[in-house]
Lab assay of single mutants.
Amino acid sequence: HNLTITQGKLFFHYNPKLCLSEIHKMEEVSGTKGRQERNDIALKTNGDQASCENELLKFSYIRTSFDKILLRWEPYWPPDFRDLLGFMLFYKEAPYQNVTEFDGQDACGSNSWTVVDIDPPLRSNDPKSQNHPGWLMRGLKPWTQYAIFVKTLVTFSDERRTYGAKSDIIYVQTDATNPSVPLDPISVSNSSSQIILKWKPPSDPNGNITHYLVFWERQAEDSELFELDYCLKGLKLPSRTWSPPFESEDSQKHNQSEYEDSAGECCSCPKTDSQILKELEESSFRKTFEDYLHNVVFVPRKTSSGTGAEDPRPSRKRRSLGDVGNVTVAVPTVAAFPNTSSTSVPTSPEEHRPFEKVVNKESLVISGLRHFTGYRIELQACNQDTPEERCSVAAYVSARTMPEAKADDIVGPVTHEIFENNVVHLMWQEPKEPNGLIVLYEVSYRRYGDEELHLCVSRKHFALERGCRLRGLSPGNYSVRIRATSLAGNGSWTEPTYFYVTDYLDVPSNIA
């Protein structure tokens, strides 16, 4: 807008934040220059609390790290170098490059900038070799853009010569660093050979998330399962459950009422301010606690030095998902009996873990797994792929695949051998790939016309006998059925096997 004052003059007093240069501009645009008398524009009460600059400061050096910015700028000295009290560095987070010096300023003089007072450097006698002032900004957020400017702080001049310097606002972004852990990993099994893994992005990506790394490792069953005799009275049979499938998407929606109208769909109840505040506090606490764990609990591995020492970490090797089922080394339970199943799973520490690289999504279907087997899954978020990966501390989750139908069934015939004193040795093959492992066998036998009897055969007993022995049988026709019990439950009964026990007292003698 054009402003013209045809008559009258300007009068400025007691404006401590208004620089004289701005008042002189007002004289020019209003056409009143030359009308004012000496005392109409006070030299001592206008701009006496402001830094009124008329020179431009330029930054000469900028260096960044993930949490620091090192700045240096060209030296500046007023005509009387004693008038320079120091520099004021202003900075704040700036997602967009549209910041002005006066953003967030209120009537009390406060604003949204963080201000650092910096002492002037030592003055050199040689004007050509003056030290460049600077400042190291610490405690910054990774991968965050900051708006920065600097200006001088000078003393009051009796001659009211307006001098000083100020830089333009520059924008500097800190470097990326390792992201925080992925949030809320959930693993479920939808079949006997697959596990579905879902997660949420890290709360602090500290860069642009480029991919996720998912490692999985087959877990050995508890050692007590191999040692305890679950045929003993009072000892509860062990059981394991597989990871249940995901709930429906509708039930997972946030901010939804727990109660549904019987007449149909209901609208979600909005969260109160107290609920939102509580969630923010919980989120802040979780982030602080995660940072504490990362800094205190997890110790970084030592990389190899120039002395030739090897990095103890196993090298990563990509495998196809079809090879995942046989990740671990199978060892027989008892070496003397080769027909026992290889369900003991000690994992070799030198073995390469299978892994998958996930790009542009937060889910993965891990296939080719062994049925009813526990897996430990390790999830890392990465925001750099080359020249070397920059990934987060791992988040861990466990899951067990679903049982395989008929995996616990005894394959092959049940054979028998009759000894003296009416002892019958029953023999059968253990299931080759049971659900988890076989903890015991149930032997059901009966003599024709009598009630059915049951015998429990422990895992250890089966390994020693290759089956079991029935003792003290009365003469007669017998039928026997056997079924295995694994961590997933009972298998199917075998087809009945028949044998006849004679009275050993009636056996004919070869003595003449």
Rank of each mutant, 00 (worst) to 15 (best):
S203R: 09
P205K: 00
P205T: 03
P205H: 04
N206G: 09
N206M: 06
G207S: 11
N208S: 10
N208T: 07
N208Q: 15
I209V: 12
I209Q: 11
I209K: 15
I209Y: 02
V214T: 04
F215L: 08
W216Q: 06
W216P: 05
R218Q: 12
R218M: 15
Q219L: 13
A220G: 14
D222T: 06
D222G: 08
D222I: 10
S223K: 07
L225G: 02
L225E: 10
L225T: 13
L228T: 07
D229I: 10
D229H: 05
Y230Q: 12
C231M: 02
C231P: 03
L232T: 13
L232D: 14
G234I: 14
G234L: 09
L235K: 06
L235I: 07
L235P: 06
K236G: 14
K236I: 04
L237F: 06
L237Q: 06
L237V: 07
P238Y: 08
P238S: 07
P238N: 11
S239E: 09
R240Q: 04
W242Y: 05
S243D: 08
F246V: 06
D250G: 08
S251R: 10
S251T: 10
H254W: 14
H254P: 07
E260G: 03
S262T: 10
A263K: 02
A263V: 12
G264P: 04
E265F: 10
C266I: 14
S268D: 08
S268A: 15
S268W: 04
C269E: 12
T272S: 06
D273A: 14
S274C: 15
S274T: 09
S274Y: 07
Q275E: 09
I276Q: 15
I276T: 10
I276L: 06
K278E: 05
E279S: 08
E282Y: 10
S283N: 08
S283Y: 14
S284P: 04
F285G: 05
E290A: 14
E290M: 11
D291H: 11
D291Q: 12
D291Y: 15
D291F: 10
D291M: 14
Y292M: 07
N295H: 04
V296E: 08
V296H: 09
V297Q: 15
V297T: 09
F298A: 15
F298R: 13
P300V: 04
K302I: 09
K302F: 09
K302C: 10
T303C: 06
T303R: 10
S304E: 08
S305Y: 07
G308R: 09
A309F: 06
A309V: 13
D311M: 11
D311T: 14
P312M: 09
R313V: 12
S315W: 12
S315P: 10
S315L: 10
S315K: 12
K317E: 08
K317F: 13
R318E: 11
R319A: 10
L321Y: 10
L321N: 13
G322Y: 06
D323S: 06
V324N: 12
G325L: 08
V329F: 05
V329G: 13
P332Q: 13
A335K: 11
F337R: 13
F337Y: 12
F337E: 10
P338M: 12
P338G: 10
N339H: 09
N339A: 09
N339L: 09
T340P: 13
S341N: 15
S341P: 08
T343M: 07
V345R: 08
V345G: 06
P346V: 14
S348N: 14
E350L: 10
E351I: 14
H352F: 14
R353G: 15
P354D: 15
F355K: 14
F355R: 05
V358W: 09
V358P: 06
V359L: 09
V359R: 08
V359E: 09
E362F: 10
E362V: 13
E362S: 09
V365L: 14
S367D: 06
S367W: 12
L369T: 04
R370Q: 13
R370A: 13
H371K: 03
T373R: 04
T373P: 00
G374V: 06
Y375L: 06
Y375S: 00
Y375N: 00
Y375Q: 02
R376M: 02
I377V: 07
L379Q: 01
L379A: 04
Q380P: 00
Q380T: 15
N383S: 04
N383H: 12
D385C: 12
D385I: 12
D385V: 08
T386V: 03
P387D: 08
E388L: 07
E388S: 07
E388C: 14
R390N: 12
R390H: 03
R390M: 02
S392V: 02
V393I: 10
V393T: 13
V393L: 04
V393E: 15
V397L: 14
S398P: 12
T401K: 00
M402R: 02
P403A: 07
E404A: 03
K406S: 10
A407V: 07
D408G: 01
D409S: 09
G412E: 07
G412F: 09
G412P: 07
V414N: 01
V414A: 03
H416S: 12
I418S: 10
I418E: 10
F419V: 06
N421H: 07
N422E: 14
V423K: 03
V424I: 04
M427N: 01
M427D: 03
P431N: 03
P431L: 02
K432I: 07
K432E: 13
K432F: 09
N435A: 02
G436F: 08
L437G: 04
I438D: 01
V439F: 09
V439D: 03
L440Y: 13
E442A: 05
Y445S: 04
Y448V: 08
G449R: 15
D450Y: 11
D450W: 09
D450H: 13
E451K: 05
E452F: 14
L453E: 04
L453C: 04
L455E: 15
L455V: 11
L455G: 09
C456I: 02
C456N: 01
S458R: 07
S458H: 04
K460T: 09
F462R: 07
F462K: 06
F462L: 04
A463D: 13
L464R: 11
E465Y: 12
R469A: 03
L470V: 14
L470Q: 01
G472H: 07
L473D: 00
S474D: 07
G476E: 01
G476T: 00
N477E: 04
N477L: 06
V480M: 10
R481M: 09
R481K: 14
R481D: 00
S486R: 02
L487I: 06
A488L: 04
G489E: 01
S492P: 06
S492V: 09
T494Y: 02
T494R: 02
E495K: 10
P496S: 10
T497S: 07
Y498L: 06
F499E: 00
F499V: 12
Y500S: 10
Y500K: 12
V501D: 02
V501N: 06
V501E: 01
T502A: 14
D503P: 15
L505H: 08
D506G: 13
S509C: 03
N510W: 07
